[in-house]
Design a protein around this nucleic acid. Structure first.
Lengths: 119, 119
DNA sequence: GGTCGTTATATTTGTCCGGATATAACCCTG
DNA sequence: CAGGGTTATATCCGGACAAATATAACGACC
């Protein structure tokens, strides 16, 4: 590509990758961030607020993920201390760790391609 | 990941990558396919029909791509033989070739990650 | 037992993108 | 000079998806 074809302003590669289940999506960047926030904040509603995401959407995503695995990624508690809460199960923590690593490898791929583009 | 966490049905990786310009997207899989169809069929409307894409959308995409480069990727002719037509410029052919190669490398990356997932 | 913040869920509202539609301009061909 | 198929462009309309809203249930804690 390069100078001949494109404008002076640099073009940037970008991309997304995700894990697709049999029915709907299982894991992606948005879902990953949601899990990370839940792990830190201990609540679906707090996580949603921190991401300026509607609670409904956040809850739907959690339900979707939990429905696709044997052991849920997020366990919830209604009522009780502080009114309730949510936290990651060991399975959830493992999924987060693995997908974070995958994202890192993908970023490296993207960086390599960007270098090839500009080189 | 693997057997412990996920259902029996295999999950599969999927992803997209694209080239982002300063204002809007410059190149992606959809735009690539559109260019390929234009190259073969010699017409924007024919290409759109072959992809079951509305002519409006196809034309918008072509205009977007042409607006972001010095020399257009697609040259068009209104009126004339067969009422007009469209074809790829050398610049357009080069972009198609390069992005096809990129897509191939990306598919390889995806395959490697899928192997790691199932391995 | 009242309070509180959360999960859980349904329903309504709103917004945005794409498709459909319409029409003009173009120019080779017969 | 009329016809035909395409590019070029504006406008209207609907459906999908997200957000907002509403409400019930829950259970520890004071």
């Amino acid at each position: 590509m390069k100078e001949l074809l494109l404008a002076d302003v640099p073009f940037r590669f970008d991309g997304r990758l995700w894990l697709e289940g049999p029915t709907d999506r299982f894991m992606g960047v948005g879902r990953l961030q949601l899990l990370e926030h839940i792990a830190v904040l201990g609540s679906i509603s707090q996580a949603a607020k921190a991401m300026q995401m509607s609670y409904k959407r956040a809850w739907d995503l959690v339900a979707s993920m939990n429905a696709q695995v044997r052991t849920p990624l997020v366990q919830t508690q209604t009522g009780g201390k502080r009114g309730g809460g949510a936290s990651l199960t060991p399975a959830g923590q493992q999924v987060v760790a693995e997908f974070q690593a995958l994202q890192a490898r993908f970023q490296a791929f993207l960086a390599a391609e960007t270098a090839r583009l500009n080189g």
